[in-house]
Amino acid sequence: MGTVATITTLFSILLGLCLPTKIEDGPKDAYVLVDSDAAFNCTVSLPWAILIWIMNDAPVLTVTPERPIITSPQFGQRNYTTSQTFTSELIISAVTLQNNATVKCSLQTDGSQQANLFVQVEGTLFFESKISSVVTNRSTDVICKAEGWNPEPTITWTINQTTVHSERYTTIKSPPSGHLYTVVSTLNLTLSAEAEVTCLAAIKALPQPKNASLYITVKPVFDSTVNQDQTWLIVAIVVPIAVVLLLIILAIVIAFCMKRNKHSESSYQDEIRKISKRKTLEKTVVDEKSSGLENFGMSSESVDDLIFPSAAPATIQADSQSRIENIYTLKMPVVPASNLGSLEQTVNQYMANVAIYPQKTRHVTAV
């Protein structure tokens, strides 16, 4: 069997060399999404001997009338034969961006024809802000973003399925990131009635453009004005009231702090006065107990006033207290011994009626 196949192949080659075989229809450019399958067709006239598929100048598949010779599992082949022609279909499975290349169909007797394989990436398409309503006859920007595409997609717009003129929107293309592109398109929209706004992104590998839509309603212009007026009115009322309340609270806090400080100072001074008064009173009581009896017979004009022995203080205090002690010291004049009994009775009777506080010095002259 091997010998017969070899002989048949050689016969076909010789026959192809003798007969005028040519390429009737060569491969065409293909635009394919990444991870999809790409297909190229090459139609030749009969009889033909050998057909070779070349990709970037490297043979990837050889076809003979008996069987194809495959060099890589990514490449495959299907046959379509008529009474006058033979068509070989090259199939490239799960293409990647690295498969962007020139594909060539070659006949040994009639040269070759070539085409290009373009592998493309479909990215995402979305609106940066989903607008649900606009004010009637007021300009609004609608932003559509196509992200992660290869090549850069073409962005167009429609309103109620009617194409928008390109002057009404602007498109900005960003530098590629890892062979992927981002495109941002901004539509300046002015509506007087509700509408469906659609953003479309197209590349040749897509049979239909990818789209994203918004259904936008229209609000009367007076609604917006009324809302703004109400907002300003509320602000104009609330802000002054808030300022007044803050000032009142601040004044109350300041008054409270001042009152508290004054009360603390007053309490401190009162305590000092009480302590001073209590010490003075105690000192007075002690001095009076030790000073003896008042001399009701003492005269302020007498030169012969003497200090009664029992009225002399037991101990002399510091200079700061000497003035107080002298105030309450009684000076007694010299009296005859025969009158001492009646004088002592008179002094005792008077001392019973004299108050301890406030203390005063009384000068009495005995006759």
Results as ranks from 00 to 15, higher is better:
Leu97Val: 07
Lys104Gln: 11
Lys104Asp: 11
Thr124Asp: 15
Ser83Met: 10
Val119Lys: 06
Phe75Glu: 02
Leu90Ser: 08
Ser72Gln: 04
Thr96Pro: 07
Lys104Phe: 02
Phe118Ala: 08
Val119Glu: 05
Ser88Phe: 03
Ser83Leu: 14
Leu125Asp: 05
Gln108Asp: 06
Ala115Arg: 04
Ser93Pro: 01
Gln98Glu: 15
Glu122Cys: 04
Gly111Tyr: 02
Leu107Arg: 06
Thr81Ile: 15
Ser93Arg: 14
Phe126Glu: 10
Asn100Met: 00
Asn79Gln: 13
Glu122Trp: 01
Ala94Trp: 05
Asn79Pro: 12
Val121Arg: 00
Gln120Arg: 12
Gln84Lys: 15
Gln74Ile: 07
Thr102Val: 06
Asn100Asp: 00
Thr85Ile: 07
Pro73Ala: 14
Ser72Val: 01
Asp110Glu: 04
Gly76Ala: 15
Ala115Pro: 04
Pro73Gln: 13
Asn99Met: 10
Phe75Lys: 04
Gln74Tyr: 03
Glu128Ala: 08
Asp110Cys: 05
Thr109Ser: 13
Gln114Lys: 14
Gln114Tyr: 12
Gly76Phe: 13
Val95Ser: 03
Gln113Ser: 11
Ser72Phe: 02
Glu89Phe: 04
Ser88His: 06
Cys105Glu: 00
Thr102Lys: 04
Thr81Val: 14
Thr85Cys: 03
Val103Leu: 01
Phe126Ser: 11
Cys105Gly: 01
Phe118Tyr: 15
Ser112Asp: 10
Ala115Ile: 04
Gln114Thr: 11
Leu90Gly: 06
Gly111Lys: 02
Phe86Pro: 01
Leu117Glu: 06
Leu90Phe: 07
Thr96Phe: 05
Ser83Tyr: 08
Thr124Lys: 08
Leu97Thr: 09
Gly76Tyr: 14
Phe75Asn: 05
Ala115Val: 03
Leu125His: 01
Ser88Tyr: 04
Thr124Asn: 11
Gln77Gly: 13
Thr85Tyr: 12
Leu97Gln: 12
Thr124Ala: 13
Thr82Gly: 01
Val119Gly: 04
Pro73Arg: 15
Phe118Val: 08
Val119Asp: 05
Arg78Glu: 12
Gln84Trp: 08
Asp110Trp: 10
Leu125Gln: 02
Asp110Arg: 03
Thr124Ser: 14
Gly123Cys: 11
Gln84Asn: 12
Ser106Asp: 08
Asn100Lys: 01
Ser106Met: 12
Phe126Asp: 11
Ser106Val: 03
Thr102Ile: 05
Gln84Glu: 15
Ala94Lys: 15
Thr96Cys: 07
Gln114Trp: 07
Ser93Asn: 08
Leu107Tyr: 07
Ser106Arg: 12
Asn100Glu: 00
Gln108Tyr: 06
Ser93Thr: 11
Ser88Asp: 07
Pro73His: 13
Leu107Glu: 05
Ser93Tyr: 11
Ser72Glu: 03
Gln108Gly: 02
Glu128Met: 05
Thr109Gly: 06
Glu122Val: 08
Ile91Gln: 12
Asp110Lys: 07
Ser106Tyr: 09
Arg78Trp: 05
Ser83Thr: 13
Val95Ile: 05
Ala101Pro: 04
Val95Lys: 02
Val121Ser: 00
Ser83Arg: 12
Gln120Pro: 11
Thr85Arg: 10
Ala101His: 02
Glu128Thr: 13
Lys104Asn: 09
Ser112Leu: 02
Asn99Lys: 09
Thr87Asn: 09
Gln84Met: 10
Ile92His: 07
Val121Trp: 00
Gly111Glu: 02
Thr85Asp: 09
